[in-house]
Simulated scan of single mutants.
Amino acid sequence: MKNFIIGLLVLGLTNLSVAQNKSLSQSELLPEVTIVPRNLTYISKVVDDNAPLKVKKLERTVARYDVTEHPDFELEDIQAFEVIFQESNARVIATYDEAGKILKSFEKFKNIALPKNIVKQIMMKYPGWHFESDTYLVRYFQGKEAKKYYTVKLLKDDNRIKLKIDPSGRIL
């Protein structure tokens, strides 16, 4: 009986290894897919590698959004179509053209996790101060560089200051 079970096990493993040797051509795996990069310019201008993940995710959602599928989108009457993307403490107002390209956007993210380089700069320059609130703002206009900066409110005793900081950590 023991030899019989071992024989079945070897036979089963042999069949599995033979089944995995069959290779499929690329055309058998997937049908032909065409990728249309619609808002790569927007992504390249607004996404900052040091920005929090929440910011990058929402910006990518805005870039992937197909405004032509929106129920209120009517091609003959439209020159620009505004869409508001909102999550907790985050809001992006994006204006799309009739082809679905982003013409401009205004982005506001409140009380997010600041990048380490910015926290380090603030702590070095303002020791003993505490973070009260922060906001990350991005303004994008097609054909121009995006304007990105953080505003940070600091508190020490009864004193408050407001700082404007670029993504590299430079205090403006």
Rank of each mutant, 00 (worst) to 15 (best):
V119D: 01
M124D: 11
S133Y: 00
Q142D: 12
F106L: 08
L24Y: 12
T34M: 06
W129F: 08
K156L: 07
V47D: 06
K110P: 04
K108R: 09
K56V: 06
T151V: 03
R60H: 02
K164N: 11
L53F: 13
D166A: 08
N111K: 07
R160V: 08
K147V: 14
V62S: 08
T95F: 09
G7D: 00
L154N: 04
V119E: 08
S168V: 12
V83F: 05
M123L: 00
I165E: 01
R160I: 09
P127L: 01
V46W: 04
K57L: 14
N21G: 10
L155E: 07
I5K: 09
G143W: 11
E74K: 15
E132N: 09
R60F: 09
S17E: 02
K162E: 03
S27K: 02
L29S: 08
V33L: 08
R64S: 13
T68V: 10
D66H: 07
D48S: 14
F109C: 07
D166W: 05
A51Q: 05
L154I: 04
V62F: 01
M123S: 11
I165A: 05
E69Y: 00
D72S: 13
I165N: 05
V138F: 01
D77K: 15
E74D: 12
D66Q: 02
S17Y: 08
L58C: 02
M124L: 12
D134Y: 01
S105T: 10
Q26C: 06
E145F: 12
L103Y: 10
L137G: 05
K56D: 08
K164T: 15
L163M: 11
A94K: 06
V83G: 02
I78Y: 07
T41V: 07
Y42L: 05
P31H: 09
E28G: 00
E98F: 12
R160L: 12
K144V: 02
F109K: 03
K153R: 14
N21E: 10
Q79M: 04
A113S: 11
F106K: 13
T41P: 05
I35A: 12
H130L: 11
D97N: 13
F109P: 01
L103V: 15
E32V: 12
L75W: 08
Q142K: 15
S88V: 13
V36R: 13
K22T: 10
D158N: 14
N39K: 01
D134C: 09
D49P: 12
F109Y: 15
K156H: 11
V55M: 06
K54V: 14
K162Y: 01
Q79K: 10
I161W: 05
D166I: 05
E98P: 14
E32G: 05
F109D: 05
S25Y: 07
D49C: 09
G169R: 04
P31K: 13
R60P: 06
P37N: 15
F109V: 07
K56R: 15
N111R: 10
K153W: 09
I112Q: 10
L11K: 00
E59W: 08
V33H: 07
P52H: 14
S105Q: 01
S105W: 03
F4Q: 13
A19W: 01
V46K: 08
L16T: 05
I161K: 14
T135D: 07
S25W: 02
K153I: 14
F85H: 04
V83T: 11
T34H: 06
I84V: 04
I93L: 15
S88E: 14
P167V: 00
Y140M: 13
E69H: 07
V92W: 07
N89L: 14
K125S: 11
T14H: 01
